[in-house]
Simulated assay, not measured.
Amino acid sequence: MKSFQALFIEKEADNTSLHFRETTLDNLPENEVTIEVHYSGINYKDGLAVLPDGKIVSEYPFIPGIDASGIVVESKSDRFQVGDEVIVTSYDFGVSYFGGYSEFIRVPAEWVVPLPDGLSLKEAMILGTAGFTAALSVDALEFSGVTPDAGKIAVSGATGGVGSLSSAILAKRGFSVVASSGKSDAKEFLETFGVTEVVPREAFQPEKVRALDKQLYAGAIDCVGGKPLAYLLTAVQYGGAVTTCGMSAGGKLDTTVFPFILRGIQLFGIDSVLCPMPKRERIWGRLATDFKLDNLESLATEVSFSELPEALHRVMNGGVTGRYLVKIK
Score class of each variant (00 low, 15 high):
residue 197 E to S: 08
residue 252 K to R: 14
residue 250 G to T: 06
residue 241 A to S: 13
residue 230 A to N: 10
residue 195 V to Q: 01
residue 174 G to R: 15
residue 247 M to Q: 15
residue 190 L to G: 04
residue 235 A to V: 00
residue 179 A to N: 11
residue 178 V to I: 15
residue 244 T to D: 11
residue 226 G to F: 10
residue 225 G to K: 13
residue 172 K to H: 15
residue 222 D to V: 01
residue 224 V to Y: 12
residue 249 A to S: 15
residue 230 A to L: 05
residue 233 L to P: 01
residue 195 V to P: 01
residue 244 T to Y: 02
residue 178 V to G: 14
residue 237 Q to M: 06
residue 225 G to Q: 10
residue 179 A to V: 09
residue 185 D to R: 05
residue 243 T to Y: 09
residue 210 R to M: 06
residue 184 S to I: 09
residue 189 F to Q: 12
residue 171 A to L: 07
residue 238 Y to W: 05
residue 182 G to L: 10
residue 234 T to C: 06
residue 221 I to H: 05
residue 252 K to D: 13
residue 173 R to Q: 15
residue 245 C to G: 12
residue 244 T to I: 07
residue 174 G to A: 15
residue 221 I to M: 07
residue 195 V to A: 01
residue 226 G to E: 07
residue 206 P to Y: 04
residue 220 A to T: 07
residue 223 C to W: 03
residue 253 L to E: 03
residue 213 D to F: 01
residue 186 A to W: 12
residue 177 V to F: 08
residue 171 A to S: 13
residue 249 A to G: 09
residue 175 F to L: 09
residue 181 S to L: 05
residue 187 K to N: 12
residue 239 G to T: 03
residue 172 K to F: 11
residue 220 A to F: 05
residue 214 K to D: 02
residue 197 E to R: 04
residue 225 G to L: 10
residue 183 K to G: 03
residue 240 G to H: 05
residue 250 G to L: 10
residue 220 A to N: 06
residue 248 S to E: 05
residue 216 L to C: 05
residue 221 I to F: 05
residue 167 S to E: 04
residue 222 D to Q: 07
residue 253 L to T: 02
residue 247 M to I: 14
residue 243 T to W: 04
residue 204 F to H: 05
residue 172 K to R: 15
residue 248 S to C: 07
residue 220 A to I: 03
residue 242 V to D: 11
residue 170 L to Y: 03
residue 196 T to V: 09
residue 233 L to K: 03
residue 250 G to M: 04
residue 203 A to G: 02
residue 198 V to E: 05
residue 203 A to S: 09
residue 180 S to F: 15
residue 217 Y to C: 00
residue 192 T to D: 14
residue 222 D to G: 08
residue 207 E to I: 02
residue 185 D to V: 03
residue 239 G to C: 03
residue 235 A to D: 00
residue 190 L to H: 07
residue 243 T to K: 07
residue 217 Y to M: 00
residue 167 S to H: 06
residue 176 S to F: 13
residue 227 K to G: 08
residue 252 K to S: 12
residue 203 A to F: 08
residue 243 T to M: 02
residue 182 G to M: 09
residue 200 P to F: 08
residue 218 A to M: 04
residue 239 G to R: 01
residue 164 S to K: 08
residue 214 K to G: 02
residue 169 I to T: 12
residue 174 G to I: 15
residue 251 G to S: 14
residue 192 T to H: 10
residue 178 V to N: 15
residue 170 L to F: 12
residue 194 G to R: 08
residue 187 K to C: 06
residue 224 V to F: 11
residue 220 A to E: 06
residue 249 A to E: 14
residue 179 A to C: 12
residue 178 V to W: 15
residue 165 L to W: 06
residue 186 A to S: 11
residue 191 E to Q: 14
residue 222 D to M: 08
residue 248 S to N: 11
residue 233 L to W: 01
residue 203 A to I: 03
residue 241 A to R: 00
residue 241 A to C: 06
residue 217 Y to K: 00
residue 199 V to T: 01
residue 199 V to L: 11
residue 206 P to Q: 04
residue 250 G to R: 11
residue 170 L to M: 03
residue 187 K to E: 15
residue 187 K to T: 15
residue 239 G to M: 03
residue 238 Y to Q: 02
residue 168 A to H: 11
residue 181 S to A: 11
residue 203 A to H: 08
residue 233 L to A: 01
residue 216 L to P: 04
residue 220 A to Y: 09
residue 232 L to T: 14
residue 218 A to Y: 04
residue 176 S to L: 07
residue 205 Q to N: 05
